[in-house]
Amino acid sequence: MKVILASPRGFCAGVNMAIESLDLALQAFGAPVYVYHEIVHNKYVVTTFKEKGAIFIDDLSEAPEGSTLLFSAHGVSPEIRQVARDRKLFAIDATCPLVTKVHLEAIRFAKQQYTIFLIGHEGHDEVIGTMGEAPEAIILVESAEDVPNLQIADDSKLAYLTQTTLSVDDANRIIGALKERFPQIIGPPKEDICYATQNRQEAVRLLAKEADLVLVLGSQNSSNSQRLKELARESGTPGYLLDGAADLKPEWFEGVSTVLVTAGASAPEEVVQECLDYLVEHHGAEITPHSIREEQVHFQLPRELREALPKA
């Protein structure tokens, strides 16, 4: 069996920053460190941090007053920040800077009296945080089919923003539908979908045609990982999303001679290697790395950590 190992894959700069922040917070302040929602949407990462003393919560009332709290990479609303202050929590903001950019765009458009269409998935942590910046001004749009049914009182000032982890193709379809119905609509100066999401999608789009099967390492609640699986299937190649080698099913490999392996932006390299080891052991796989682009993006640690840690 031939295995094409896609690159870029796995952790993006935002995930690296968030994970390093939680690691350092545990070292500097000791366990427990409370984390509002999952640090990233990955089962392996969350389980690993639980074993180190992180406690993941969905309500800030679960964090004792004065304790250490970390906001996940997905961002939070102003309301949550205020609750953290009221409870005198030492809050470390590990929001991905690309998500922060969308928040700032939402604030700017709302101040200018725009109605904002946020393209994204209802209930996703990132969407909840962004909508919290200007709930009275933002309308969620999940699909192009939603666009004809949008009801707005004044269509003279309209803008759109997108969740950072969407499928580029899906987002473009929805943006196209919005522009067709509302030609006057404006978007952000620079598109919101993150560089890592785009690069991983591009790799699957280019390489899936060469494979009989696509394996995407990532968790079911990871939006960007789900998009990679969907993209493989749209290209005509069977694709599956799995947390690790334990999820592999023998029937997937019947008649398969070439497998493409990639990973979502919140999936660690350990689970990729575990999957590759399985393919080598059980199928005699020969692994060929294929890089479509180099990534050299790095985000600095949150200010709260930089100020609290000893200077090198």
Rank of each mutant, 00 (worst) to 15 (best):
A28Q: 15
L89I: 07
T237E: 09
Q273N: 15
F117M: 01
L260S: 06
I152C: 09
S225T: 08
E295L: 12
S21E: 14
S223K: 02
R81I: 05
R81E: 13
S257G: 01
G129D: 09
E269S: 13
E62H: 12
S235A: 15
T164P: 03
N42S: 11
I185R: 00
A134T: 02
L104E: 13
I186S: 06
A208R: 00
L228V: 07
V259L: 10
Y44P: 07
Y34A: 11
V33K: 12
T48L: 13
A63K: 03
P78W: 04
E269G: 09
P238W: 01
G264L: 02
T100K: 09
D155S: 10
G30I: 14
Y114E: 05
S266R: 08
F253Q: 04
V204W: 01
K52M: 11
K311M: 05
V141Y: 00
I193V: 09
R303H: 07
V3L: 03
Y36K: 08
D125V: 12
P302W: 02
N172A: 12
S156F: 05
L5A: 07
S61G: 10
V102F: 03
E295D: 13
A153E: 15
A18M: 14
R173D: 14
A245W: 03
S219G: 14
R85W: 04
L89D: 00
A267I: 10
G132V: 10
Y195F: 13
F11W: 09
V280N: 03
Y114K: 05
G244T: 05
N149D: 15
T115F: 02
S72L: 08
V272H: 03
Q163N: 06
E65P: 06
A265P: 05
G218R: 06
R205Q: 10
Q163G: 02
D170P: 09
E105R: 07
T130P: 02
Q296N: 14
A25R: 06
T237L: 10
I19F: 12
V3T: 03
D23N: 15
S143L: 10
P78G: 11
A13K: 07
R200Q: 11
E180G: 09
V40Q: 03
L228W: 00
T288H: 10
L98W: 01
T130E: 03
E234F: 12
Q201D: 11
A263V: 11
D212F: 00
L309Y: 08
G30F: 15
S167M: 04
G132N: 08
A159C: 04
A6F: 04
A28F: 14
L248I: 13
V141L: 03
I186Y: 01
T115M: 05
E126Q: 08
F182H: 10
P97V: 04
D277F: 05
L161T: 00
F90R: 06
G264Y: 01
E274M: 15
N221M: 06
M1H: 09
V127D: 11
K229P: 04
E202D: 10
P268G: 11
S235V: 14
D277G: 07
P188K: 07
Y240G: 08
I292E: 12
E191P: 09
G187A: 05
G120T: 01
P268N: 12
F90G: 05
Q184Y: 00
A28T: 14
Q163T: 04
